[in-house]
Amino acid sequence: MRNVVPLVIAFVAGVTMMLALFVPVLQPLQERASVWFIILAAIAFLIGGTNLLLHHARKIAQQEAGWGFSAVTLVSFFITVFVGLAKWGVPPSDAYPNHPWSGNYITEGAPLWWLYQYIIDPVTSTMFALLSFYVASAAYRAFRAKNTEAMILLGTAFIVLLGRCSAGTFLTSWVPESLEALTFPGATAVIMAVFTTAGQRAIMIGISLGVAAISLRIILGLDRSYLGADE
């Protein structure tokens, strides 16, 4: 019974959103639904924040594997929340110089700004930079010529990689302009514009139809697995 209300909400919201695409009068409802979702997500963040605290506190208490990271997480969490909420070190705004909390919490030079600028940003960039090593290791495995398909993939990748760097341009610079498609950059352009685009479009058409089908299953209540058990 507890799933009936979510199913009704899913049906009404789904049909309304679909109609809003074609009925201009309903379009404000579409925008309002987005606002409601943001409000819901903001409230849910309290649940998430509480869960974060409890989860890491339990790990520390039970000294599970990696509990030291949990301790760092909690300390960082409390420092960030305190610095942000208390607007610590934020100068008052020009409009209200007598009100100490009137400044913008991300004012340049303030501690919260400093935390983002000198800790979160570099750490995030470091994680992102690791991607290059993972690309190399994944490419090494993917391009091993173990069968015909892998050999075709390897050959295509070789052409595209060379076509995208100056070495490819240099190596085939002697090819006359009339045969540009035979140069590395020319062949790369053909591969990307014809083969890759065709493949991607096929996937996109499949995805669009898949989205339509799963949306209908959810709107019509055929697929309820995401709601959990109906007690």
């Binding site: 996937i203 996109m204 499949g206 995805i207 139809l209 898949g210 989205v211 089908a213 799963i214 209908l216 299953r217 055929l222 697929d223 697995s225």
Partner: peptide, 23 residues
Amino acid sequence: LIGEELFAASAYLSGEPQQLGTL
């Protein structure tokens, strides 16, 4: 699972005729 296979998965795994009908 490439593209549409992700969306077909729940219908496929459920094995229910009406869900498979959507495919």
